[in-house]
Design a binder for these strands. Sequence first.
DNA 1: CAACCTGTTCGCCA
DNA 2: ATGGCGAACAGGTT
Length: 283
Amino acid sequence: MPELAEVEHSRRIWDVGLGDRVTRVEVATNAAGRVLRDLDVAGLQRSLKGQPFHSSEARGKQLAFRFGGDGSRWLLIHLGMEGSLRVEGPTHAPHKHDMLVIRQAKRALVFRDLRHFGRVRFFETDGTPEAWAKLPPALDSKAFDAAAVGDFLARRKRSALKPTLLDQRRFPGVGNWMADEILWRARLAPQTTGGELSAKEIATLTRVTKEVARKAIAVVTHDWDYPKTWLFAHRWEDGGSCPRCGHALARAMLGGRRTCWCPTCQPRRASAFGSRSTPKKTL
DNA sequence: CAACCTGTTCGCCA
DNA sequence: ATGGCGAACAGGTT
């Protein structure tokens, strides 16, 4: 479940190969039509061969690995649902779900994706590839503020907050568990609609989103052990209870996603009942 | 063994 | 044009 923090962690895994030259690039020969769609494989192999690994960057759930002395060769990877980056020995024999194997003299940098929900793209350009430049403002950026969140919620005033938080165009990096963690901290029921929030609640939601993003990255960087004070540590358990008030956690499908919340810390509003019915009024 | 789960995209509908 | 929502996608696990 690669979300923002796991993606940032994944980025660092390949960093052991920074500065070293690529000797060879191998791609999955079968079952990779989806992950490698629109990828010019021959062009990628030709372009990376002999080039040093220049730098890496993560934005939300997106990863960029740049190659070449000037970093002009951009390998963009999205891990999908269960994709992972790994470092194997120089003689690594590709696993059947290894979508990409970038060989260097001392190691192999591997992108493995069992579910084939990931995506690999490649661009060679003097500037920044458009696919990278047009990514939305990161959660920790100044542009991600209460005004931006408020605008977004205003356009989704009848949508539940849970699916809205999963929208990568405004909340890049937020995934299923982060969305639940954010709503729990903000004391907002996941069924609450965007139009129901006060200005103060929008400010809280924005602040908490930044906080969860920052702390999740810090946790992953240090010991990968999410504190028991987080909803995250309890949401997977059968039964689990709220780490704040001890009440039994509630679970339901919302927007097609398994959702966990505390019914007492995150009370539903009267107007939220029946929110799945068709709106009778539009503006 | 069919259902499940996950993030994104796509298609359809209003 | 835009929002909302369900289906599709892949395949290991239950």
